[in-house]
C-alpha cells in the first residue's frame, strides 16, 4: 500500500470538527431527553387496557419501528413542509425523526418494564389512596426504571450513532462537517477515520459502563 496517511487537515480543521461534535451532542441529547419523556406516555398507553389509548399508540410504535430512520428524517425534511403550512430547518427535521424513533423504541422498553412489576405493587399504592400517576411516579417507575436502565443506555448509544444520519439533510453535526472538510481537503479517508475514532472514544466508555452496570445488577439479584 502506498497510500500516505495525512491527518493534517483533521488537525487544521479541529475547531470545525469540535463544532460538529457539539452539534452531534446537542442533537443526541435533545432527542434522548424528548424521546424518553414522551416514550413514557406512549409506553403507558401501550400498557393500558383502554383501546382508545392502546391502539393509536401501537400504530405509532409500529410505523416508527418498521421504517428506516434515514427515511423518517428525509421525510420530515422534504415531505412535511408540503403537508404542513410551514418550513422546518434541518435541526427540527432531524430532531423530529430521531425523537419519534426514540419515543417508539423507548415506549417498548417502558411497556416491558412496567409489565415486569407485579400487580400487587399497583394495588398497594392504590389502596393507600394514590392516584394513577402517584402510583406510577412513587411506586412503579422507581422499580421499573432500575430494570429498564441497561436497555435505555443501549438505546442512547444507538441514538448517538444515528445522529450522523442528519448529515444527509445538511445539519451541521460531526459527520456533516467531516463531509464538508473532506470535499475541500480531498481526504475523506482520514476525515471519516477521525469521525469514527471520535464516536468510538465517546461511546466505548459508555458501553463499558452499561455492561458493568448490568453485571453488578445480576450479582445483586
Amino acid at each position: 500500500m502506498d497510500y500516505r496517511w495525512d491527518f493534517s487537515a483533521v488537525l487544521v480543521n479541529r475547531a470545525l470538527l469540535l463544532e460538529g461534535l457539539q452539534n452531534t451532542l446537542i442533537l443526541g441529547t435533545t432527542c434522548l431527553a424528548l424521546g424518553l419523556f414522551f416514550g413514557l406516555f406512549v409506553g403507558a398507553a401501550r400498557y393500558s387496557a383502554n383501546r382508545w389509548l392502546h391502539d393509536p399508540a401501537s400504530v405509532f410504535v409500529e410505523v416508527f419501528r418498521n421504517t428506516p430512520v434515514l427515511v423518517q428524517i428525509m421525510w420530515f425534511f422534504f415531505a412535511f413542509p408540503i403537508i404542513a403550512p410551514f418550513q422546518i430547518n434541518a435541526f427540527t427535521a432531524a430532531t423530529l425523526g430521531l425523537t419519534l424513533n426514540t419515543v417508539a423504541f423507548s415506549s417498548e422498553i417502558y411497556r416491558a418494564g412496567l409489565q415486569s412489576i407485579a400487580r400487587g405493587q399497583w394495588e398497594a399504592g392504590k389502596a393507600l389512596g394514590m392516584t394513577y400517576w402517584q402510583q406510577m411516579r412513587r411506586v412503579i417507575l422507581p422499580q421499573a426504571i432500575r430494570r429498564m436502565l441497561p436497555a435505555f443506555m443501549n438505546r442512547a448509544v444507538e441514538l448517538f450513532k444515528m445522529t450522523s444520519l442528519a448529515s444527509v439533510i445538511a445539519y451541521g453535526e460531526l459527520m456533516h462537517k467531516a463531509k464538508v472538510i473532506s470535499t475541500i481537503a480531498f481526504n475523506p479517508i482520514e476525515m471519516y477515520t477521525a469521525v469514527a475514532l471520535i464516536f468510538f472514544a465517546i461511546l466505548f466508555p459508555a458501553t463499558v459502563l452499561v455492561r458493568r452496570f448490568e453485571t453488578s445488577r445480576n450479582v445483586r439479584s
Partner: peptide, 16 residues
C-alpha cells in the same frame, strides 16, 4: 381509599 386501610396476603411492600 385513603380512609380505608388494607393489608394484603402478599404484603406488597414497596421493595425500593
Amino acid at each position: 381509599r385513603a380512609r380505608v386501610g388494607m393489608v394484603f396476603q402478599q404484603f406488597n411492600l414497596f421493595p425500593h
